[in-house]
Amino acid sequence: MKRHLTLHNDIQEVPQLAAFIDEVAEECNIDMALTMSLNLAMEEAVVNVMNYAYPAGTVGDVDIDAEFDNGTLTFVLSDSGTPFDPTQANDPDLTLQAEDRPIGGLGIFLVRQIMDQVEYHYRDGKNILTLSKNISSVNP
């Protein structure tokens, strides 16, 4: 199974991503709970690119390739924006009280919590983020 989607850096296109993930998950017989988790991880990863890769006011693309092979679902996100390695972000401190919790910083953390592997490369002027999830246990 291979599928592709291209979105602009416009958060109003997030529902198109959700529809894409739902289709991919259905094709791989992934249950609803994991489908929602994959939706969440992908929304966070893609929105991060939409919000930060390109200078404000400029239009840019984010390409999403999905592939299911041998029990592993892999998404590859690529964009031509500013080099940024999200795997280097610090984990938030989950033990803080509400007063001390920062408002942001949860997106990339959720990606890392949900996916089994997250790898970043910068190649040929592109940020390439590879996210994979082993789903063989739920999809024998």
């Binding site: 969440l40 966070e44 942001g104 949860l106 997106g107 959720l110």
Partner: peptide, 8 residues
């Protein structure tokens, strides 16, 4: 459904 934007 909720994402980090909603948690915020």
């Amino acid at each position: 459904y909720i994402s980090s934007s909603g948690l915020r």
